[in-house]
């Protein structure tokens, strides 16, 4: 039982990170019907710039309190990623908005490769370790262990998701985003500045990616120019699982994928009597994805089009 609870906790933490990144994919898709394949790399840039700032601050003031250094790093990551998100949209997607749909997909992959290699040139090939400034406390819960960091990650993700939902549902910008998602032309005719809305979508999505990036590097204790690739792929899958274009779907998909992965890796070996080992954890997660898509091609929550943003 305690092992099961622990696996659930593992899955929820991983899943809330997936969910944050998945939101970025789903927001852009909702509005532009474009898969922003560079989004995983934006996460990586967020993590790396936070690590760089935190490292520099600690280098200059070794005694600086973590409560000051950490927010500074996160803030820097958010700024960098917001700017990056804006630039990516402006340079790689906006010029191609009326081009065949495959063209922006290719530029997305191009941007992703450029970002990866630029990060390799800037931060080098080595793994950068997260400075040991994080709280190390842990609490027993139902026989399992949950650490301070895990509590922070899950709480922060939930708050951000709530905030984003409020933004989309309750604000003027949110209404403009929903209108643009339904029909770009009509929204434009109604006086919505579509370009601003699209830029805002990219900027918000990138800010979420920055936060997720910092979370990942803090949770696993490392940053690397390659870290965005797998994370992006998983988050993209989570967005599809939940129904791409749907905000609640991305959150649900992220959490589900995290939990399925954890439970899959934890139990598949014992359940199959060692025939399938934990090396099948990704296979397991993607099998669930395929099954869901066979029966619900639009994803778990994919049909409520009105809610997408």
């Amino acid at each position: 039982m305690d092992i099961f609870v622990q696996q659930l906790i593992n899955g929820l933490v991983l899943g809330s990170i997936y969910a944050l990144v998945a939101l970025g994919y789903t927001m852009v898709y909702g509005i532009l019907e474009l898969i922003n394949f560079a989004h995983g790399e934006v996460t990586m840039v967020g993590a790396m710039s936070a690590l760089a700032v935190i490292g520099a601050l600690l280098g200059a003031y070794p005694q600086a309190p973590a409560l000051l250094v950490l927010p500074a790093g996160v803030l820097a990551a958010i700024m960098v990623c917001m700017a990056l998100g804006y630039v990516i949209e402006r340079v790689a997607y906006r010029p191609l908005r009326r081009a065949p749909r495959l063209a922006p997909l290719i530029t997305a992959i191009g941007v992703s490769i450029v970002l990866q290699n630029a990060a390799m040139l800037i931060w080098g090939r080595s793994y950068i370790s997260f400075p040991a400034i994080l709280p190390h406390g842990s609490h027993p819960i139902l026989g399992a262990v949950i650490t301070d960091l895990q509590i922070v990650i899950v709480t922060l993700s939930v708050l951000i998701m709530l905030g984003l939902t409020l933004l989309v549902e309750r604000t003027r910008l949110g209404r403009a985003m929903r209108a643009t998602a339904q029909s770009r032309e009509v929204a434009e005719l109604m006086g919505v500045n579509v370009n601003t809305v699209i830029s805002a979508t990219f900027i918000i999505g990138s800010a979420l990616a920055a936060i997720a990036g910092v979370m990942v590097s803090a949770y696993y204790g490392l940053g690397h120019y390659y870290m965005g690739f797998m994370l992006g792929l998983k988050a993209f899958s989570a967005a599809v699982l939940g129904g791409i274009g749907n905000l609640a779907g991305a959150m649900l998909g992220g959490l589900l994928l995290g939990v399925i992965e954890a439970l899959g890796a934890g139990y598949i070996g014992d359940l199959t009597g060692g025939f399938l080992g934990s090396n099948y954890q990704d296979v397991f997660a993607f099998m669930v994805l395929i099954l869901v898509l066979v029966f619900r091609p639009s994803g778990l929550l994919g049909e409520r089009v009105a809610q997408r943003a």
């Binding site: 092992i3 593992n10 991983l14 870290m227 954890a262 070996g269 060692g274 934990s278």
Partner: peptide, 22 residues
Amino acid sequence: TAREYTSDKATDFTAILTSIKG
């Protein structure tokens, strides 16, 4: 007592480590 697997690109081992802990 346990034989678990991961990949050379993974960073999350909490699931297999939890299973091992059991």
